[in-house]
């Protein structure tokens, strides 16, 4: 459904995306992860046709976004991160407009609007303007406007930002519905647990390049049989690094003044050894957490920085 091949996008001297290649298939949720400035938005904008690639190709359901932009746009549904809604129009009117923008008219449009209103749980408030909605309701309407025309390819850019848990769960269910009917979903998020729970395939980007890709299991394998030990307190960065320098099977993922993260083989059994080394470095330990490796720790391992930085 989405084929990105050696995409490169350059703004003056700045290379925002370089050698980006991946394929997202129908019936699949494809996660695109990375911190701000990693090149996610540039990649998505190239797919959506808002940006023209400097080189490389992007096609959506067989339509090249440069040579056949209208064909590509007809297959797309986009849910932007910002609440791109008309505040002066009711939820129903917003859905009507966006459905109409994709060519739906008359009875077909009305049926789709009613279905989506029901799916996003706003049928009782369909006549209200978004300005009277809670943040979660606005997010649901924002999502509804992107799926009203039942797109084959759905681009979701951080669709659950600032959403309460109930609305988030409802939204994620609707995303799964789209996949169940055969749509291809490209999903970007900062919520690692959300990506882990939702995505079938993942790409992690940093500095405009793909630094890791695969299924969740494949990415976990990159971490090996390592656990992540997170310790909070007060630390001397240099002393901590020195304490673990050369210690077999231990890698320092992150050292800040108040947080240290370590990746260690069989960390459960080696906990006294690890905490002892930290204590010897002069650390004032307040809290420790031992976790299975996740996307966050993988990102730390690959880039040396947290995903949310």
């Amino acid at each position: 459904m989405i084929v990105v091949n050696e995409l490169r996008k350059q703004f003056g001297q700045l290379v925002a995306a370089e050698d980006v290649s991946f394929t997202a298939k129908a019936g699949q949720i494809f996660g695109l992860l990375g911190p701000n400035g990693a090149g996610k938005s540039t990649t998505i904008n190239c797919i959506a046709g808002l940006l023209t690639p400097t080189s490389g190709t992007v096609s959506v359901k067989g339509h090249d976004v440069v040579s056949d932009p209208l064909g590509a746009r007809r297959t797309l549904g986009v849910v932007p991160q910002e609440l791109a809604l008309y505040e002066d129009l009711s939820a129903r009117e917003n859905l009507r407009f966006w459905g109409g923008a994709y060519g739906l008219r008359g009875q077909q449009l009305e049926e789709r609007v009613n279905t989506v209103l029901s799916q996003i749980g706003l049928q009782d408030r369909a006549g209200d303007k978004p300005e009277n909605y809670s943040g979660g309701m606005k997010r649901r309407l924002n999502f509804g406007c992107g799926i009203v025309h039942q797109p084959d390819v759905l681009l979701l850019d951080e669709p659950t930002v600032g959403v309460d848990p109930q609305s988030r769960e409802r939204l994620l269910e609707r995303v799964r519905d789209q996949v169940a009917r055969g749509a291809c979903v490209l999903y970007t998020t900062h919520y690692m647990e959300e990506a882990e729970a939702l995505c079938d395939q993942l790409v992690i980007m940093d500095h405009g390049k793909i630094i890791a890709s695969g299924t969740m299991d494949e990415l976990r394998e990159m971490m090996g049989e390592r656990d992540v030990l997170r310790v909070s307190g007060r630390f001397d960065g240099q002393a901590v690094r020195k304490a673990f320098d050369g210690m077999a099977g231990v890698e320092v993922l992150q050292v800040d003044a108040d947080v240290v993260q370590l990746s260690a083989e069989t960390a459960t059994r080696r906990l006294p050894e690890l905490l002892g080394a930290l204590a010897e470095s002069g650390a004032d330990i307040q809290e420790t957490t031992l976790a299975r490796p996740n996307l966050e720790s993988l990102f730390l391992l690959l880039t040396g920085k947290a995903l949310r930085e």
Binding site: V78, P80, L83, A84
Partner: peptide
């Protein structure tokens, strides 16, 4: 509001 951007990808 982002509606212009959204319209441009329609």
């Amino acid at each position: 509001s982002g509606t212009l951007r959204r319209t441009l990808v329609s």
